[in-house]
Amino acid sequence: MIETATQSVITGTMMGIIYALIALGLSIIFGVMNVVNFAHGDFVMLAMYLSFTVGTLFAWDAVITPVITVPLLFVFGLITYYLLIDRTLRQMYVVQLAVTVGLQILMRSAALIIWQAQPRALQYSFIQGNIEIGPYSILTSRLVGAVVSLIFIGGIAYFLNKTWSGKAMRAASDDLDVASLMGVNYHRTYALTFAIGAALTAVAGGLLMSFQQTDPQGGVRFGLLSWCVLALAGLGSLPGLIVSGIIVGIAETFAISFIDPRARLLAVYAIFILVLWLRPRGLFGRK
């Protein structure tokens, strides 16, 4: 019993850090642009498929595929921003919602056409295997995933705090008009924000493909997960995002271990509802 619980905490922590990376993209897009991207989970799905295709084509390991999928998703993010999102910025909120939900349906349908309905997975990855510590085992793939995720989250923190573009993004997040009057080109800043948010899903997609399969409906799960993590964390705190990701990850593994593998989404939904009910600004959110 205690062993199972401890094992769940270990596995859940590592999955949770990957979830935090997925939610990071959603978080910066929402935080900087105030755009709710309902298609975020489907960006992850697309990233996983691209990872599959790249991995199959070049016989690469999944964890290396982001070398190609990150630039692809970055460009896809830019295109999405300029063709769709940019035009919704001055519109009513519901227009934004309709556009991103529409994008979600479009991406799912496109995935169905391109990769068909069956799940796709890559060959066993070279980071497959376990590290045994006493009675517990750590899956190498999850460990690598968690470490790489932490590196990227740290990189984004550095980018936001130390670089010109990052400062421009934070300024635009605080007051768009003023940032604009101080010389910040908001079209470019927003495009960069959206593209980075998309590119981060490519990193996560590569990591996930090292131990999971993907299917055209996969976006639902990752969309919900990232929403839950973001709601729990609130906006503006990257450490808070990591902690929230871990909480969600552990809750999910507990549901799998102690209730039923099919109950994983139940745990996520339960947290989501509880947070929105009891503390809408999240555990670590600003204001």
Binding site: R170, A171, S173, D174, D175, V178, G236, R286
Partner: peptide
């Protein structure tokens, strides 16, 4: 007129 600072910076 009404100060508009970047409150989180």
């Amino acid at each position: 007129q009404v100060t508009r600072a970047f409150l989180h910076m």
